[in-house]
């Protein structure tokens, strides 16, 4: 077992993890953060996206040990029913949510884009969301939701 220290959703944790344990396993099984979804286990679908030190990563491709010392945001760290993040609000209002399995990863990719670029172009939105697959094929509304969230953020 390996001891790691990391900050998840603003809370510090010290965990004992297996050498082969993936970050998604540590988040889901050790911390009970079940909003992070596993769709493919090989970095294709983006359902397991989390924000690690300001970058979106596929948590199925990151070993828990590699996350030692990092700061992580999972979907549980973004908004709530009282005060949803503007990305979450836009996703609901535009109808960008169908089966919902890709949604946590989509929200995190969109949030991370807007954290860094408050006025993204359509192309920049497309690139930022390109690592997240939606098999219900609701891409048009997803991209529109990100655009609306971006516009709401501009003041």
């Amino acid at each position: 077992m390996i001891e790691i220290k990391l900050v998840v959703n603003d809370k510090p944790y010290t965990l004992e993890v297996e050498p082969s344990e993936r970050l998604i396993d540590a988040l889901r099984n050790r911390l009970g953060l079940l909003g992070t979804k596993e769709g493919c286990g090989e970095g294709e679908c983006g359902a397991c996206t989390v924000i690690m030190d300001g970058k979106t990563v596929n948590s199925c491709l990151v070993l828990a040990a590699q996350a030692n010392g990092s700061v992580i945001t999972s979907i549980e760290g973004v908004g709530n029913r009282r005060s949803p993040h503007r990305v979450q609000k836009a996703f609901v209002e535009v109808g960008a949510v169908q089966c919902g399995f890709c949604t946590p990863g989509m929200v995190l990719s969109a949030k991370n884009l807007l954290d860094k670029n408050s006025k993204p172009s359509n192309e920049e939105i497309g690139i930022a969301m390109s690592g997240n697959l939606c098999r219900c094929t609701g891409y048009d509304k997803i991209l529109r939701a990100v655009k609306i969230a971006a516009e709401e953020g501009k003041e």
């Binding site: 909003g35 549980e76 709530n80 979450q88 996703f91 609901v92 949510v97 919902g100």
Partner: peptide
Amino acid sequence: VREDAWGKVFG
């Protein structure tokens, strides 16, 4: 607004 969407955007 579909009611199940909120639970989905919060994971």
